[in-house]
């Protein structure tokens, strides 16, 4: 899509320069990652784009207890890495990543970009939430780069103001799950390849039918992907078979989804219940 207001293209090679270029034009400048959101929407206010491609943020590395993924790692790069395969969280991360879009968009869309511009459904956002992902954010302090680490769940919902304040996502960190951790992605969509209407990612440690370290993330029921805390709490250290239904029901009470052309509020709630229960059941299978 043409955005004729853009009059200036920058491709800095260091982070400090990138942050300065964004700061200097304030809300009239925008970071450019894969372009699948920025270039797909009208941007009447944006005069400068700062391309992050030269910052070396495209690597995936295992370091101690965490995987570190550069913010410019593409969705397809994640799918093709060990994190997208069956051996990591039962393939749930890869499955959620594949649900984001067709290949030609996955080849460009980046992890930083999809989180910075997240919608309320984002299957990969749900999987990252359920994986306890953390973000490394860089901003200017005076004239130096300051980095801080923020849990993804604290970022979502406030992402627009965090980024408008001049911060850049530079890295996504995923803790390496314990050996008995299981995860599953479930979704309902109009066709098998379509973007979901509602989706769920459950992750839990499973031992003798008892759940531990429970995470349940839902997409399609709020303005961003969310965690269902009450459901997680209700299932923790409990027999999955006996407590899943009541725990999910408790969690759903906190939701007030908006209906739209893809599904009414009632439909979204009903599907959220079903997808959550299916995902939990697959973890327990």
């Amino acid at each position: 899509m043409a955005n004729p207001a853009i009059q200036d293209y920058q491709r800095p090679t260091d982070l400090l320069e990138a942050l300065r270029q964004l700061r200097d034009l304030g809300p009239r400048a925008m970071a450019l990652a894969g372009g699948t959101a920025v270039n797909a929407e009208p941007q009447p206010r944006i005069e400068r784009v700062v391309d992050l491609a030269g910052l070396g943020l495209g690597a995936i590395a295992e370091e101690g207890p965490v995987w570190k993924l550069g913010a410019m790692v593409t969705v397809q790069q994640l799918i093709d890495s060990p994190l997208g395969r069956e051996g990591f969280l039962g393939g749930a991360l890869g499955e959620a990543a594949r649900a984001m879009s067709g290949l030609n968009l996955r080849n460009r869309a980046t992890l930083g970009g999809i989180l910075a511009t997240t919608d309320g459904i984002s299957p990969l956002g749900c999987a990252l939430l359920a994986s306890d992902a953390e973000l490394v954010l860089a901003s200017l302090k005076g004239d130096a780069v300051e980095k801080r680490v923020l849990p993804l769940r604290a970022f979502l919902g406030y992402h627009a103001s965090v980024l408008a304040g001049g911060s850049l996502i530079t890295e996504v960190r995923l803790p390496i799950p314990s050996g008995d951790t299981r995860a599953a992605y479930e979704r309902v969509a109009r066709t098998p390849r379509d973007y979901p209407i509602v989706c769920a990612v459950a992750r839990l440690a499973h031992k003798d039918g008892i759940a531990g370290n429970v995470r349940l993330a839902l997409g399609g029921v709020a303005a961003t992907p969310i965690r269902l805390d009450l459901a997680e709490f209700g299932l923790e250290k409990k027999a999955i078979r006996d407590h899943a239904a009541a725990a999910v029901e408790d969690g759903l009470r906190a939701l007030s989804p908006q209906g739209d052309w893809m599904g009414s509020a009632e439909y979204r709630l009903a599907m959220a219940r079903e997808m959550a229960l299916r995902a939990i059941a697959r973890c327990a299978a």
Partner: peptide
């Protein structure tokens, strides 16, 4: 494979 409508020529 990419969509050329979402890539800036400068990139």
């Amino acid at each position: 494979l990419v969509n050329s409508c979402l890539v800036l020529a400068a990139e």
